[in-house]
Design a protein around this nucleic acid. Structure first.
Length: 274
DNA sequence: AACGGGTTCAACCGCCGCCTT
DNA sequence: AAAGGCGGCGGTTGAACCCGT
């Protein structure tokens, strides 16, 4: 026996909201707030809507300072990083993006971002393109404290993280280097250690980067080798487009420690319940 | 211009957990 | 301790829109 419905479904209007309904709801909440009871609210203001529907409409559309569309690259990275770390916990992810709603982020992920990432991942397999999977994998690799070399949310990448690195794919292979300036950008003193929570990007410009701590080198190379058919474009070289595109996509998780906090139910989760 | 397939996104559904009684 | 009510959440749906043919 299921739970009783929250409202009388037969006498409740469904479907898109009219401007009049929006105006009624918005005006009432702005003047009186919700009164702490969404279920009773539609009767109070004469709306033939379910209380939950009112709540959703307010939270996702009418509430002030809502942003729609035009997700920035930075927002993309935050969404990806958090998704990799904590999965489809949209409300938590939304809490990190002011003005964004969980519904918007969920839609954006499902309709665009996922394709942007995994559509390109397929290119990796089909056409030797090095794409976003590397970025995803890096996020996982760097968050091994959290995931213990496994991605619960991207399990297809787990084997890549745990398999031994294959031999270098081309004769003139050189170890991956981080651009020295990228470290300085994020407050690193050249020669200082990179911590797990640091952001950086691959350096490919021939600038002699600092030695990468071996653990990081191993993690990165393992992932890169395991997730690409080859770096070799047939001439023993990776083509420039690959590198350029890759570097634009690669970002270690912005806030792995934050993701950990989220998983452990600390500050952000606490904020949610306010 | 018309059609059909693909994409987007607002809204709904139903489950879960917390709080109150 | 148990039951009921509600808010919150993530998954799913379907109408509207877009785009290629």
């Amino acid at each position: 026996m299921g739970r009783a419905p929250c409202c009388d479904k037969a006498n409740v209007k469904k479907g898109p909201w009219s401007p009049e309904e929006d105006a009624k709801l918005k005006s009432y909440i702005e003047q009186h707030s919700t009164g702490g009871n969404w279920i009773a609210l539609p009767q109070k203001i004469g709306l033939k809507r379910c209380g939950k529907s009112c709540r959703l409409r307010w939270l996702n559309y009418l509430r002030p300072n809502i942003k729609h569309g035009d997700f920035s690259e930075e927002e993309d990275r935050i969404i990806c990083s958090l998704y990799i770390s904590i999965g489809s916990r949209w409300s938590i992810i939304a809490a990190q993006l002011p003005g964004r709603t969980d519904n918007d982020i969920k839609n954006y992920w499902n309709t665009r971002l996922k394709k942007k990432l995994f559509g390109k991942q397929q290119l990796v397999r089909r056409g030797r393109k090095i794409k976003s999977e590397i970025g995803n994998s890096m996020a996982i690799a760097f968050d091994n404290h959290l995931c213990n070399n496994q991605s619960p949310f991207l399990p297809e990448l787990t084997s890549a993280l745990n398999s031994p690195p294959p031999p270098p794919p081309c004769a003139n292979y050189q170890s991956l280097q981080f651009a020295s300036n990228s470290q300085q950008l994020f407050g690193h003193t050249p020669g200082g250690d990179l911590s797990r929570t640091d952001r950086f990007q691959f350096g490919t410009d021939g600038v002699p980067g600092l030695p990468i701590p071996s653990r990081h080198v191993g993690e990165l190379e393992k992932v890169v080798y395991s997730n690409t058919a080859s770096f070799d474009n047939g001439n023993g070289l990776m083509n420039e487009l690959d590198w350029g595109e890759m570097s634009s996509l690669i970002s270690a998780p912005l806030y792995p420690s934050m993701a950990h906090d989220l998983m452990m139910g600390s500050s952000v989760l606490g904020q949610q319940k306010q």
